[in-house]
Structure formats: structure tokens, C-alpha cells
Amino acid sequence: MGLFSGSTDSDGDSDSEKNPRSFLEERGFVASAIIIGAVLICLVVWFLARGSGNNPTAGASQSPSTVAPTEQPTEVGPTGPPATPIDTPTATRTAPPPPNSHTGGCHDKTPDQGIPRIAAPPAVTWQYEAEMLVPLQAASGPATTGTDGVRSCFAHSPTGAVFAAMVLLGQVQNSAVSVAALNQRVLAGPGKALALAAAKEDARTPPTDPGSVQFSGFKVLYYPQNATQAIVQIACNLNNKAFGAIQVTMQWYRGDWYAVLQDDGTFNGTVEPDILSSLDGYVRFSGSS
């Protein structure tokens, strides 16, 4: 299973540099749970279940799928060729925050509400989820790691929303927690049901070549004061061949951030993901050395 995928054509490997979809498909990043349209790339997110009693539900007042933000940002597509990443990911040696804390993440009643626009969040530890590095921070979260490995409890802040989105996307790369993370960290709705069905099917036939996707940066597109909804754009290094980015909607619900899927089981719906010509405008943020 993976974050990004696309369809190949009859030209095979020779088109990998001209057509990002061919490259992403050959790497085996098949987003079976959350297929993001017939466009450049697809990004999938799954998450594992602890039981129906813990299942978050997107009600009429909580679901961003039905209530759009009043200041929806407009992204300008890249005009140049895709950027070529060169970093090699490595896990940081910084001591990680405790897996369970009663002070950070969602327990912080007065988190910093500043939107990170230039500098990366400080004091961050990067840990592997399967082959993908995810960020951990004592202040923003995750402050809780369940016995099943699912990470939760993020600060009610712009940075907390970013960490929640990135950790969630990273956990879908870990087959040991992917279905549980989908159940626990995505709001209920038609899209979630479709994603779960696809995730379970994908788990029965895992790809033989998982490829490599690593985070490269982010930008906060939408976060009003005291937000209950956040929209973040996450940029990834795609097998050191290109940068791809996708928009993720997060909802503050019962004391934590949860991802919201569209009714078709995708993050973006009709909004196309981007193949980036550069990381200009993004906060550079990765576990790469």
C-alpha cells in the first residue's frame, strides 16, 4: 500500500520522467484505499479500528465535506519541470518524546496558534512507520500511542494539524497499523467506508515493490482563529525523482484532529494533486539528512 499512485501506459519505463503517473505506478505506490481521481497522482490514507465505540463520526456540524471554508485557497500549478529531490532519509538521533504524555498534544489547553510559514517546527524527532519517517514533537503531538500502534492526541493548533496529517499519512505505509489507523483517525462517512473496504482488499495483496515516499514540506492553506477545521498541503519526495503534494482536510472533533475524506473515498475529490517544480512557498520539513 502507499501514498501516491497513478496509471501506466504502453510506453513503460521510458515515460517515467515525462509522465509522473507512470513513475508513481511503477514504484508500487497503489493507493487502493483512497484513490484520488484519474489525475497526476493519488494519495491514500488508511487507519485501524479499535471498535465501533471509539469511531469518530462526522455530523452535519462537523463535516468539512459538506461545509466548505469561506476562504478556500487557490493553488497555482507549477510552470516548470518537476523538481528532483536528492536527500536520503535518515531517522534522527534526537531523543523522542514519550509515547504517552499528559502534558503535550491535545492535553495542552493553550497551544501556540501561530501558523508556521517559514521555519520548521523545532525539537522534532523523526521515527519510521514502516519505510516512511513521521514527525513527533512533545508540544504538538502525538501524545498518545495505542497498544495497536496508532498515534493520536495532537495540539489544537496549526502545527498540531500539520503533525496530525503527516503522522496519519505515514501510518498508512505501515501494514501493521494501516486498517486500525483508518478506523480510528478518519471521521465516519461514505468515503471512510469505501477507503476501509479498499484497504482490507489491498492488505490481502501487498505490493512487492513498496518504493519510497518521504515527507519534504508543508504549507497551511486554511486555519481561521480557533479553528475547528484546517487544510494543509503536504509535499513528499517521490522516490527521489520528483516532489508531489496533496491537500488534506483535518477536523477538530472531540478533542483531537481527524482526517476528512470526500464521499468518493479520496482526500481531494475533484482537486488535482500537484507535481511540484520546486518547494518554494512550502516550509521545508523532513527527516532527511
Score class of each variant (00 low, 15 high):
2 G>M: 04
3 L>R: 06
5 S>H: 12
7 S>K: 09
9 D>G: 11
14 S>P: 02
14 S>H: 05
14 S>F: 05
17 E>G: 03
19 N>G: 00
21 R>W: 00
22 S>M: 07
25 E>T: 05
27 R>M: 13
28 G>A: 09
28 G>C: 07
31 A>R: 03
33 A>S: 12
36 I>L: 08
37 G>C: 06
38 A>L: 08
40 L>H: 02
40 L>Y: 08
40 L>G: 08
41 I>T: 10
41 I>P: 01
45 V>Y: 12
47 F>E: 04
47 F>M: 12
49 A>C: 12
54 N>H: 13
54 N>C: 13
60 A>Q: 14
63 S>H: 03
65 S>M: 11
66 T>S: 15
66 T>N: 13
68 A>F: 13
68 A>W: 08
69 P>A: 09
71 E>V: 06
72 Q>F: 02
73 P>I: 05
74 T>R: 14
79 T>P: 01
81 P>I: 05
83 A>Q: 11
84 T>R: 13
86 I>R: 12
88 T>L: 15
90 T>I: 14
91 A>K: 15
92 T>G: 14
102 H>S: 14
103 T>S: 13
104 G>D: 05
105 G>T: 09
106 C>G: 02
108 D>M: 02
110 T>P: 02
111 P>H: 06
111 P>G: 09
117 R>S: 15
118 I>N: 08
120 A>V: 10
120 A>G: 07
124 V>N: 03
125 T>A: 11
128 Y>W: 15
129 E>W: 08
129 E>Y: 10
132 M>P: 01
136 L>N: 12
136 L>D: 02
137 Q>G: 08
139 A>W: 03
140 S>M: 07
145 T>R: 15
147 T>W: 07
148 D>K: 00
152 S>H: 09
159 T>H: 06
166 M>P: 01
166 M>N: 03
167 V>S: 10
170 G>P: 01
172 V>C: 07
174 N>W: 05
174 N>E: 15
174 N>Y: 10
177 V>D: 01
180 A>V: 12
181 A>H: 02
184 Q>K: 12
184 Q>Y: 11
185 R>Y: 01
185 R>W: 00
185 R>S: 08
192 K>R: 15
192 K>D: 03
193 A>V: 15
195 A>Q: 03
197 A>E: 14
198 A>E: 10
201 E>A: 15
202 D>G: 15
206 P>I: 10
206 P>A: 13
207 P>Y: 08
209 D>T: 14
209 D>F: 11
211 G>N: 08
215 F>V: 11
218 F>G: 01
218 F>Q: 01
219 K>T: 13
220 V>H: 06
222 Y>N: 05
222 Y>R: 05
223 Y>C: 06
223 Y>K: 00
224 P>H: 06
227 A>W: 01
227 A>N: 09
229 Q>Y: 06
232 V>N: 00
237 N>T: 02
238 L>S: 10
239 N>K: 08
240 N>H: 11
241 K>Y: 04
242 A>L: 07
244 G>N: 02
244 G>I: 03
246 I>Q: 03
251 Q>T: 11
251 Q>L: 07
252 W>I: 04
254 R>Y: 09
255 G>I: 05
255 G>C: 06
257 W>E: 00
260 V>P: 01
264 D>S: 07
268 N>K: 04
270 T>L: 10
273 P>S: 10
273 P>R: 03
273 P>G: 01
275 I>P: 00
278 S>N: 11
286 S>V: 06
287 G>P: 03
